[in-house]
């Protein structure tokens, strides 16, 4: 990690901005200008908190997601507090409060799944998401059954590692 602050920021941006941007869009229900504010503030906080950046990449990612989510929650609480004195308007933002931990977790799991190879993802889609048996998956993927078995094994091992790195499982 170089000491030049602008370079540190460029590296942060290069490594994480795509995932962070997608997450911020999701958090703000595709409100681009709010999403950009949140992404900016998140990157700046990461940059100021340089201790975080020495961690492994996966946990930097989780940290960024957590910070982005907290920024959105804080905004939402502030607006709600302001609204309590006004008329009973319907909320114009998603209620992120209690469900936000769930949201964060599913986003981190999705991010971990994107680190898997295409072969590993394909075997998990067949066996888990589509509920296919080893024999069916082998036919659809056109590989021997033994390969489906070992691939699911290695796919789950890779997933577990990616989740460990993101602090989800230990």
């Amino acid at each position: 990690m170089t000491d030049n602050p602008a370079t540190v920021m460029k590296e942060l941006h290069e490594d994480h901005s795509a995932a962070l941007w997608a997450f911020c869009l999701h958090l703000t229900a595709n409100d681009r200008s709010r999403a950009e504010d949140v992404a900016q503030e998140t990157l700046l906080r990461a940059w100021r908190n340089s201790a975080v950046l020495t961690e492994s990449r996966g946990s930097v990612r989780s940290w960024l997601f957590t910070v982005a989510r907290n920024i959105v929650i804080d905004e939402w609480r502030t607006r709600r507090a302001q609204r309590e004195f006004a008329t009973a308007e319907p909320p114009d933002v998603a209620p992120v409060g209690d469900q936000s931990d769930e949201l964060l977790l599913s986003w981190v799991v999705a991010d971990a799944l994107t680190t898997l190879s295409a072969d590993h993802r394909a075997v998990l889609v067949e066996c888990y998401y589509r509920g296919r048996s080893v024999a069916e998956a082998a036919r659809r993927l056109d590989v021997p059954e033994g390969t489906v078995k070992s691939r699911t094994h290695y796919a789950l091992r890779a997933l577990r590692l990616a989740l460990e790195e993101r602090g989800v499982v230990s």
Binding site: A6, M9, A18, W21, A22, R32, E36, A39, L44
Partner: peptide, 16 residues
């Protein structure tokens, strides 16, 4: 994937 806005990096770098 939705492309990252081109304004993001210049904004954070100048803030830094």
């Amino acid at each position: 994937p939705e492309p990252v806005p081109e304004t993001l990096l210049p904004a954070v770098v100048s803030e830094v």
